[in-house]
Design a protein around this nucleic acid. Structure first.
Lengths: 187, 187
DNA sequence: TTTGTTTTTTGACAAATGTCAAAAATTAAA
DNA sequence: TTTAATTTTTGACATTTGTCAAAAAACAAA
């Protein structure tokens, strides 16, 4: 738990009171490899903080699983669209490794926001970071070649290559598994 | 100005006090078609609220201008990466039509956040909306064909087609102008 | 109008990536 | 181990999209 709070401080330093309040609202979850945290069609009512492990978000398209994001330790994890809008999720969240997560319900989080401006600030800052991270991925997806995207991944997120099956990485990069295999063979 | 505040209420309803404070911190800007609001290499220290008009964000790649986003009335506009991190912007912001904007400096906004929890909430909610909007664009960029992306644009944002030159739209969709022209000819 | 400029379209071809099928390599299970 | 299942690689070919050059169309200025 202390480890979790330290990670959160990287976003915004909380006062003792707010930190305690947050702590009281978090529930620990442990799941094993391949277990499902969220199934498409359900509303995602929780925000998770990933303490250890790895997971992925994927959806089904023409019978294929499209992995479009990964979560690793220190990440906030949820189906953002569903969590924010309250609509059913179009994606699934599945564990790639066994994970320790801390969960907070949307209503509980809203209550925390109401009582602790600091916590809402933390979240605002987290969204800022996630926004520019996504913006960068978007620009890569739209304007770079498959090879460039793979090179960038090696440099910026080598842990992904080491911990995630190739098939997941291919769709994460927006290319077929065969193309990824051919790109790799050139290195 | 009242119009602006009404738009902002669509994100989160502000109390009178916060609304007045916000109002006092906004500066009106009017610019003509083709004028530049931000030049790459400069730090973007302002968040803009676009009351009327249209503009685009673009950067230079191999001598070509890549338009990667548009702003229209009611949009928050800034170079998010630069505004958030304080680093020089990699992009330019240029008017497509004459615009009326309301500007607020980053320091002023931070002060508003400090004094008005409500305004920070407004911003948190705005980031939520912008995050899921970007997420949707990302998925389209990565996993849909050029034709699908164009069809989606016609359905979801017909105003873009009507108000923006084709060349800008092509790079917004992540395709060459020639390909866009060929896609259009099929309709 | 008439002319000049810019934008959009078209044609020919090249490059990048996808698809399907099968082989090879790796991992897990008995 | 040995076998079975899964993952990754390879080959052949199809499809999508890009690039370059030129023509056509649309727009703006004189």
């Amino acid at each position: 738990m202390q480890q979790l709070l330290n990670h959160i401080k990287a976003y915004h330093r909380l006062g003792t009171e707010a930190e305690n309040a947050l702590q009281d609202c978090l529930t620990q979850i442990s799941l094993n490899k391949n277990e499902i945290l969220l199934t498409q069609g359900n509303v995602c009512r929780h925000l998770y903080f990933l303490e250890t492990g790895a997971l992925r978000g994927f959806y089904n398209l023409d019978g294929k699983e499209i992995t479009h994001w990964f979560g690793f330790e220190k990440d906030f994890v949820t189906s953002f669209h569903s969590f924010i809008t309250g609509e059913p999720a179009v994606e699934n969240i599945q564990l790639i490794e066994g994970c320790t997560l801390w969960a907070i319900g949307k209503e509980t989080l809203t209550e925390l926001f109401n009582h602790h401006h600091e916590i809402e600030r933390l979240m605002r800052i987290a969204y800022e970071k996630y926004y520019i991270r996504l913006e960068e991925r978007f620009v890569n997806a739209q304007f770079k070649t498959a090879t460039e995207r793979y090179e960038e991944l090696i440099i910026q997120s080598p842990h992904i290559i080491e911990r995630v099956p190739l098939g997941y990485i291919a769709s994460y990069l927006g290319i077929s598994q065969e193309t990824l295999s051919r790109i790799r063979s050139k290195f």
